[in-house]
């Protein structure tokens, strides 16, 4: 296996053009898959020496740009992310353990594609976009179109995610719940991320509800969110949204719970997370 350490995006893309080649962000997923012989690449392209892939800044007053190799630790401590996207800092601080967070990157976190991960639903609910660069050019893919299936994303093998941009919405209320009824140090059984804006009357102007752990990828509960928009949510409406989210989920049985339990928990935690958002 060959290792390359390019220092520019162009250099990285050139290397990625080789057969059976993989990009490495923090390598936490890659190393595990190598160890278990789930992958046997001929070449790894390390991204940690490409300066333009790092850094977190304000692209415009309305967008935060997060370089693909930003680590979860950087997301936890970035003053900008803490101020503009507190849910993202919080969710980053819950991932795995300190050693995973100090190495794993946002690029790896969205491309790895394990449905139980924390950042995908959080970024989905925040309306984030991935910027993809490849041999045939550049494009922006909203995360709602990015997660295609279990370990499958819109970024091709020869492409790079260079950055993730997240809209910065004034007055947005956000809340992420990570339900871990067994060990706290585990993937969530169910994750619920909600971002919403209210007008001065308390009417929901805009809402996005995203779920983790209950389908082959993180998913948006579009219908549940639509129920809330235009209303000052009553308990009945919140209950209806919870039920709608549960009906839209497609969980499977595993060690963390049966299909029916996870579905019921989507209902409970969607309701509770909506209430937490409304409470501010």
């Amino acid at each position: 296996m060959l290792i390359s350490s390019p220092t520019s995006v162009e250099g990285a893309l050139e290397e990625l053009g080789n057969e059976n080649t993989l990009a490495v962000g923090g390598g936490t997923s890659i190393a595990l898959m190598l160890k278990n012989r789930l992958i046997e690449p001929d070449r790894l392209v390390l991204l940690n020496k490409v300066p333009t892939l790092s850094g977190i800044d304000e692209r415009t007053s309305a967008t935060v740009r997060i370089g693909a190799t930003s680590t979860l630790l950087e997301l936890m401590h970035s003053p900008l992310v803490n101020a503009a996207l507190p849910m993202l800092s919080f969710a980053s601080s819950r991932v795995g353990n300190p050693r995973v967070r100090s190495v794993a990157t946002i690029g790896g976190a969205i491309i790895h594609g394990d449905p139980r991960q924390d950042l995908p639903p959080v970024l989905l609910s925040l309306g984030a976009t991935a910027h993809i660069v490849g041999p045939s050019g550049e494009r922006d893919v909203p995360l709602s179109e990015f997660f295609l299936g279990f370990m499958e994303s819109a970024a091709g093998e020869d492409e790079l995610v260079t950055e993730v941009t997240v809209p910065r919405v004034a007055g947005q209320r956000t809340h992420y719940t990570r339900f871990t009824p067994g060990s706290e140090d585990d993937y969530p059984t169910v994750g619920v991320a909600i971002a919403m804006t209210l007008d001065s009357e308390g009417t929901v102007r805009d809402a996005r509800i995203a779920l983790g752990g209950v389908d082959s990828t993180a998913i948006l509960a579009t219908e549940a969110a639509a129920l809330l928009v235009g209303h000052r949510p009553s308990d009945e409406l919140i209950a209806a949204a919870g039920q709608s989210a549960a009906e839209g989920a497609n969980p499977s049985d595993d060690q963390r719970g049966s299909e029916s339990y996870k579905r019921a928990m989507v209902d409970v935690w969607t309701r509770r997370t909506i209430s937490a958002c409304l409470a501010g």
């Binding site: 067994g182 060990s183 706290e184 140090d185 585990d186 060690q255």
Partner: peptide
């Protein structure tokens, strides 16, 4: 054995 690694076979941690 489905819990064939420590990611799945959970031991109580300092938080648990």
């Amino acid at each position: 054995v489905w819990a064939a690694n420590m990611g799945e076979y959970k031991l109580p941690s300092a938080r648990d």
